[in-house]
Simulated scan of single mutants.
Amino acid sequence: MRQLAQLARGPLSAAVVELVTTGPPGGAARPGAARPEPAGGGDPWGEDHQLALHLCYELHDRGLPGVDPGWEWDTGLLGFRQSLERPFLAAVRAEAGPVPPLAELVEGLLTATGDGGPAGHLLAEGERWQAREYLVHRSVYHLKEADPQLWLLPRIHGPAQAVLMTVTYDEYGAGRPERAHALLFARMMADLGLDPSYGHYLDAVPAPALAVVNLMTLFGLHRSLRGAAVGQFAAIEITSPPGAARLAEALARLGAGPDGTLFYREHIEADAVHEQLVRRGVIDELTATEPELAREIAFGMAAAAAVDARFAGHLLDHWRAGRSSLRSALPDGPGGSDGPGGPDGPDGPG
């Protein structure tokens, strides 16, 4: 990751960076510290908006380099974050459109093929540079896989909570740290010549990929959106196995070694089990005891599909035109060398 001061993509993200890097002194946040002006009139899908929101959310996750952790609960910054969340959530609701009934959405996810998406493209005609770009995009989430969903655990109770804990336990290796999915993803990145350091490629990752992860965190951090968080997580688990199978085969075709396909091979089997657990043990249990959550769970699924579709469209539009889908191309990107390249070449994100 570049120095924070170099990451800004506009006035919103620049204001966040300036605020958290100029204090507070003494290791504790100043209550009600001055904050940037609320967002208004900008594009909630835009680069500046999505990066500003991502930086605010990172204070709740791994933190930001050199930033006092007291900023996490600074009331001024939380107010600014809210001014970013509201238009983003409104834009997601508008993009999702009228939400079908939950049962209809689940059935659609179970029968979806995904042939026309990025995984299908990489399998049928993808090039190695495109596969590496795909991993860079996905690294924003997969290097902390399931962390956003953990916010859900104290927000649901009874059998649904126990089943959700079972699923997330698997995400962290089921007691075997070396099998944690985030670590498997890091090994896959290294196998394809990428730097697996957390946040290394943030400057290169564009807004459509940031929006996918921001949506997860938005849902996870708000109890009022816990149903949407369940729906978003369920959508991942239900649709993962066929996509993972395509990606494992595509990466093997493009020269990945065993470490370069293990992450997706793990998800073919694991998420087939998770799909059953999430549907029957989480969704069915929750809607039986709290039927009012069904509509919000359905919205979470529809919202995830809408944001994922924007991301997929971004990738395919760029790749089919022979252009990099990143903000700065990797060394072996279009027009670059044919070799795997290193993570810090002259055209890579410094």
Results as ranks from 00 to 15, higher is better:
G70N: 05
R93E: 15
P31H: 11
P36W: 00
G27C: 07
A90D: 14
V67R: 05
G76N: 11
R30N: 00
L51D: 05
P38I: 06
P36M: 02
G66C: 10
A90I: 02
G23D: 00
D74G: 13
A91V: 06
P24W: 09
R81E: 13
A28M: 10
A94Q: 15
E58H: 06
A52E: 00
L89D: 04
T75C: 06
E95M: 01
V92L: 10
H49T: 02
L64H: 00
G42L: 02
D61R: 08
P44H: 07
P87F: 09
G41L: 13
R81M: 11
C56P: 01
E95V: 01
E72M: 07
P100D: 14
G66Q: 15
A33G: 13
P24S: 14
F88Q: 01
F80G: 05
P25Y: 14
L78R: 13
R86E: 14
F88C: 03
L59C: 01
A90H: 04
D48H: 03
Q82Y: 03
P101K: 03
A103K: 09
G70Q: 05
T75K: 10
L78D: 08
L105Q: 11
W71I: 12
W71R: 09
W45Y: 08
Q50S: 13
R62W: 08
E47V: 12
P31D: 14
D48Y: 01
Q82I: 00
E37R: 15
L53Q: 07
R30T: 13
P65Y: 06
W71C: 04
P38W: 02
G97E: 10
P101Y: 03
G23R: 04
E104Q: 15
W71G: 10
D48I: 08
G41Q: 06
A52D: 11
H49D: 04
P36C: 07
A103C: 04
A33Q: 05
G97W: 05
L105P: 03
H60Q: 11
L105C: 02
W45Q: 04
W73F: 15
V67I: 06
A103I: 04
F88L: 11
P69Y: 08
R62Q: 15
P38F: 01
A103S: 15
E85L: 15
A28N: 10
D68A: 13
H60D: 14
L84I: 02
H54F: 13
A34R: 06
A90F: 01
D74L: 01
E104V: 12
D61Y: 10
G79H: 02
Y57P: 05
G70I: 06
E58Q: 15
G40L: 12
D48N: 11
S83T: 12
P65V: 03
G27D: 10
P87Y: 03
P101N: 03
L55K: 08
G26C: 05
G46S: 12
D74T: 02
P69T: 11
E72L: 07
A39P: 13
G42P: 00
A96W: 02
L84R: 02
D68I: 04
G26R: 06
L78C: 12
G27I: 05
W71K: 02
A103Q: 09
A91E: 05
E85N: 08
L102W: 06
Y57Q: 09
G41S: 12
R93G: 06
H60S: 12
P65N: 03
H54W: 08
E47K: 09
